[in-house]
Design a protein around this nucleic acid. Structure first.
Lengths: 193, 193, 193, 193
DNA sequence: GATGAATGAGTGTTCATTCAT
DNA sequence: CATGAATGAACACTCATTCAT
């Protein structure tokens, strides 16, 4: 029998990301994706159960890659600030190198499909971070507020700044990334230092 | 609750907001909106040029209302922190009272339609704020960074915290709103106080 | 129950009969039949030229089996009434033991595929019956009418009564089968006896 | 506003009957019906909820017309045999004048759609007939058997004989129709007369 | 012989929009 | 102003069949 042609799956992946970025989730029809990937619409249904499965699977793939990239080099023994700074810079690096994936990721989270997947931080990969936050709170390094508040001053700013669409006229140079990190840290830390 | 004597246009407005909130932009078809508004599909085309015009017009209406509500009571002579605090609380108040409008607003900004409207802050109504920021920067009250960085630690956190969907398990009591504001202020101010 | 060592062809036969009975001819797609038979769709095309060939071949197989069962024990020297009674009871016995085959058979005859096969009675196996009818007509035992009229009071009633779907609330006990036979005989015979 | 164009509905009706007769229920797609009726596929969905509704509605329309035609002239005071004879001839007349409707009717009853509608005789229109049967049974005019047995020697033979497809080489002249009726009566009556 | 991958053509249905009243 | 009828184009998805291994 004929073997699965991995290049076809990759073509579908790329075509989907491209089209969703260009025209949005709703307008990116299966037929258009197929044409962009140089593949029959029916072929897509070999690799994915339906359109929802296609979009969700691609999101999860991207999310995993992004998570892996952002926690690279995490060291449990480092102080929280250093860990966070690493996460921050890792994230910006990933985005600057994979703008299209990030855009797909963001669009997905703001589409009705997002309700089909669990929470962003509810993953084992981030568990060490959560522990670090908790112990830092106990040591009075960071503010003792609901975790969602801390999150609100880390993820959304990061997302906006990384998104070339929303932060149009600001180039995220290394210096700007570092400035932004200091702002985030000031927001959540008890004493500046 | 649709009233008997409610004007057609208002009925269309309400139906659109309701449907978009319930099933999203893509699934909210003209036919469904018309049925929800107890109106013929053709009637919608009397008031709006097409579907895009309908969605954009409603967004702009909501945005204006929201802007007006958020800057209410702004006093040019107050220190920036006070002005900002007022803005912050005003915004949360608006959201808590108009959750449906806010949800439509957020969904719109994350849909492909958002590219059809100009930037959020590029409005005359916010001009006094921009001036206040500039003078505060000169007085070394807030950090001297690109304005987009300041924005990034005010609007996105506010948005996320106000959004009942994303900050699911955190009740935004007055105390939490104030805590969040202090975090935003710590992010952008030069010296805490 | 599909057996491990059952030949592919038998598996396809069973799967087809089962699916056609459950969801009908139109909905029984090649893919579904293949899955039910634990076989690749392509495999079906090894044994049958195409879908039409598959369905027709299976019908003919069933028809042959049914014909063979219904004429079992036919004795040319018996009077027509006895031969017919035997046929009648044989038929009901076959149906009661092979409901699924009978159902496929009936569905096929009422599908557009039926035009692809010749008439039911045009077979050599039934030839002795035809002769018996002819000689009985000459002996004024049965009515002297067009053979189609005789057929009309034997086959369709038999079919309907044997079909569990159409004769829902009537149990075809041996007594009922015999009553029905007497009715058929009264319809075609010249003098009751 | 534009009024419903009854000619469109009639065109859809005729196109559906024609196509179903020519290629069967499964192959008669909405697109083909629309093209045959010189109408957009979408137009069909103005008049019918979906394909099932289309096919069932047309069946019910035909059934009603057929029922009305077959019981025309029924007289409660006539003996059962006369009533039945009238029904028998009425039915053949209807079929000879509306072969296409009859064919649609028969095909429908043998399609999976048939399970969506109630039983053939379960109608008020036939109620007087049922009563006549019951009283005839009490008067020992017809055999005392399950009503389904009586039905089995009236409806299926009638159906087969009226169907030009199954009784190919037999012309149903008035004389043949009458012969057939006598056979049916012989089948169900206690004493010939 | 047997397979799963691959596909163009088709399925029933809904879309945004216009027409005629 | 307001309407429901009407539509061609598009939708997500499945079809019977063939291909390459």
């Amino acid at each position: 029998m004929r073997l699965q042609d991995e290049s076809k799956k990759a073509a579908i992946f790329n075509a989907t990301v491209k089209l969703v970025n260009e025209i949005g989730f709703a307008a990116a029809s299966v037929a258009k994706i197929a044409k962009e990937a140089n593949v029959s619409p029916a072929t897509i249904y070999i690799y994915y159960k339906n359109k929802e499965d296609l979009l969700v699977s691609i999101f999860l793939e991207i999310k995993q890659e992004k998570t892996f990239a952002s926690i690279r080099g995490f060291d449990e023994s480092s102080p929280l600030k250093e860990s966070l700074r690493k996460l921050w810079h890792n994230s910006f690096k990933f985005v600057s190198q994979n703008g299209d994936l990030q855009r797909y990721h963001d669009q997905f989270l703001n589409s009705p499909y997002s309700e089909l997947v669990a929470d962003q931080l509810g993953e084992d990969a981030f568990q060490p971070f959560l522990s670090a936050f908790e112990s830092a709170a106990k040591k009075k390094i960071i503010k003792k507020v609901h975790f969602d508040l801390l999150k609100a001053f880390i993820l959304p700013p990061l997302s906006m700044l990384a998104n070339s669409r929303t932060g149009a006229d600001l180039k995220m140079t290394r210096k700007n990334v570092e400035s932004a990190f200091e702002m985030a840290w000031d927001a959540i830390s008890l004493d500046r230092n």
